[in-house]
Amino acid sequence: MNTTPPALLDEAPAGPPRRTGRHLLDVTEVRHLTADTVAVTLHVPTALRDVFAHHPGQHVVVRHRAAAGTELRRSYSVCPPPHAPAALRLVIKRSGPGGFGEHATTRLAPGVRLELSPPTGTFALPRLPGAHHVLLAGGTGITPLAPMAVHALRRDPACRVSLVHSVRTSADAVLADELAEVKDEFVDRFTVLYVLTREDRGSGSGPLARRLDASGVRRVLEAVEARPGPDTTFVLCGPPGLVATARQVLAGLGADPSLVRWELFTADGTPPRAPEPAGRAAGEHRVTALLDGRRRAATVLPDDPVLLDALLRSHPDVPYACREGVCGSCRAKVLSGQVAADGQHALDERDRAAGYTLVCRARPRTPEITLDFDA
Score class of each variant (00 low, 15 high):
residue 42 L to R: 02
residue 55 H to N: 04
residue 47 A to T: 15
residue 42 L to G: 03
residue 86 A to Q: 13
residue 72 L to E: 13
residue 56 P to Q: 03
residue 64 H to R: 07
residue 87 A to S: 13
residue 69 G to N: 08
residue 84 A to S: 11
residue 58 Q to V: 03
residue 75 S to K: 03
residue 65 R to Q: 15
residue 88 L to C: 09
residue 46 T to V: 10
residue 55 H to L: 09
residue 72 L to R: 14
residue 85 P to S: 09
residue 49 R to T: 12
residue 86 A to E: 14
residue 47 A to F: 06
residue 54 H to T: 05
residue 63 R to T: 15
residue 82 P to Y: 06
residue 61 V to T: 12
residue 61 V to F: 01
residue 87 A to V: 02
residue 46 T to P: 05
residue 74 R to D: 03
residue 70 T to L: 11
residue 67 A to I: 08
residue 88 L to A: 08
residue 50 D to K: 12
residue 57 G to F: 00
residue 68 A to L: 07
residue 61 V to K: 00
residue 51 V to F: 00
residue 81 P to R: 09
residue 88 L to P: 02
residue 54 H to S: 14
residue 62 V to Q: 10
residue 47 A to S: 15
residue 68 A to Y: 00
residue 59 H to G: 03
residue 82 P to V: 07
residue 41 T to G: 10
residue 70 T to Y: 05
residue 60 V to C: 12
residue 57 G to P: 04
residue 80 P to N: 04
residue 70 T to D: 14
residue 60 V to S: 04
residue 48 L to G: 05
residue 54 H to K: 09
residue 54 H to M: 06
residue 87 A to P: 02
residue 57 G to L: 01
residue 79 C to M: 00
residue 74 R to H: 09
residue 74 R to E: 04
residue 80 P to L: 01
residue 65 R to M: 10
residue 65 R to T: 15
residue 86 A to G: 11
residue 76 Y to I: 11
residue 43 H to L: 08
residue 49 R to S: 09
residue 69 G to W: 06
residue 78 V to I: 15
residue 49 R to E: 13
residue 87 A to R: 00
residue 69 G to A: 05
residue 68 A to H: 12
residue 49 R to Q: 15
residue 79 C to A: 11
residue 50 D to M: 05
residue 66 A to L: 12
residue 57 G to K: 04
residue 86 A to S: 13
residue 74 R to Q: 11
residue 77 S to E: 05
residue 84 A to R: 13
residue 48 L to N: 06
residue 62 V to W: 06
residue 81 P to N: 11
residue 71 E to K: 05
residue 64 H to L: 11
residue 65 R to A: 11
residue 57 G to T: 02
residue 42 L to W: 07
residue 57 G to M: 01
residue 74 R to N: 10
residue 85 P to Y: 09
residue 69 G to Y: 06
residue 51 V to A: 04
residue 84 A to C: 01
residue 42 L to N: 05
residue 76 Y to Q: 10
residue 82 P to K: 02
residue 58 Q to C: 05
residue 72 L to K: 11
residue 83 H to Q: 14
residue 79 C to E: 00
residue 54 H to C: 09
residue 42 L to P: 04
residue 66 A to M: 07
residue 72 L to M: 13
residue 63 R to V: 14
residue 69 G to S: 08
residue 75 S to G: 12
residue 54 H to D: 03
residue 48 L to W: 02
residue 77 S to P: 09
residue 77 S to H: 10
residue 69 G to K: 02
residue 48 L to S: 07
residue 69 G to H: 05
residue 75 S to R: 02
residue 60 V to G: 02
residue 68 A to D: 15
residue 58 Q to H: 04
residue 79 C to P: 06
residue 52 F to S: 03
residue 47 A to H: 14
residue 52 F to Y: 07
residue 88 L to N: 06
residue 43 H to Y: 07
residue 84 A to Y: 01
residue 47 A to N: 13
residue 40 V to D: 05
residue 63 R to W: 00
residue 63 R to D: 10
residue 44 V to G: 01
residue 43 H to W: 07
residue 87 A to Q: 06
residue 64 H to Y: 14
residue 51 V to W: 04
residue 45 P to G: 04
residue 61 V to Q: 00
residue 62 V to N: 10
residue 60 V to M: 09
residue 60 V to L: 12
residue 55 H to R: 14
residue 73 R to Q: 06
residue 62 V to S: 08
residue 72 L to P: 08
residue 82 P to G: 03
residue 46 T to W: 04
residue 51 V to K: 03
residue 80 P to M: 03
residue 64 H to T: 11
residue 79 C to Y: 00
residue 86 A to P: 00
residue 84 A to Q: 12
residue 88 L to S: 08
residue 72 L to W: 13
residue 87 A to M: 07
